[in-house]
Amino acid sequence: MEQKDDIILQVRDLSVSYGHIKALREVNLEVRKGEIVVLVGSNGAGKTSIMETILGVNTPDAGQVTFEGRDITKNPVDKNVRGGMTLVPEGRGVFATMSVLDNLLLGAHHELKTAGKKLNFVFESFPVLGVRKNQLAGTLSGGERQMLAIARALMSTPRMIMVDEPSIGLAPIVVNSIFDILVNLNKEGYSILLSEQNVYKALKCAHRGYVLETGRVIKEGRAEDLLNDPAIREAYLGA
């Protein structure tokens, strides 16, 4: 019983298809409170599909998604965001023609009354965004945009943050700082579901991981164990 309370997100036998293409086949995974869980796999393995289905973008063919004990399988995206989960989309997904402030407020679209307090918190955590709050998001650098996307996610007061491929297209030094941010957020109590192609870095900072291949979970376990698994080392780390 105690363990069940611990689980914030539970995915059971999730299958999703786009037309005739099966994107996910009977995926099972869970995220516990205060964990960083990483989804590892190559392009097209289904990492983004899992996250988008959990959020409610896709309707699954079969399976169930439970968040904090509630069945959210059929919920629309905006209801899930109000319910406490959020996604930082791949490629940052900031609104380039809108100001940094507007982008942040969009994150708090469903509860603007408390947005002021959250803005202060976000600007404390990411001072650079405070400096540039009236700038258009399109004028930010890649790393700053990723920060903005994460900050925007925080604006919706989530309890679980899903982060899709945060390191794509960023310089290594910027990637390090983004991972630092995620680890710090995790220490503050946010549960994080992360998808990453940068397998080594992701497993280094995560608690547990799932390895995906063509829409299936082929391996799961503690991050250190996966990191030391010879098959994974060979397939993803080139060692």
């Binding site: 905006d78 609104f95 380039a96 969009l106 994150g107």
Partner: peptide, 12 residues
């Protein structure tokens, strides 16, 4: 600007 992005952010 981006209907899909807006949806992901949670705009109905």
């Amino acid at each position: 600007e981006n209907p899909d992005g807006a949806r992901l952010v949670g705009i109905p």
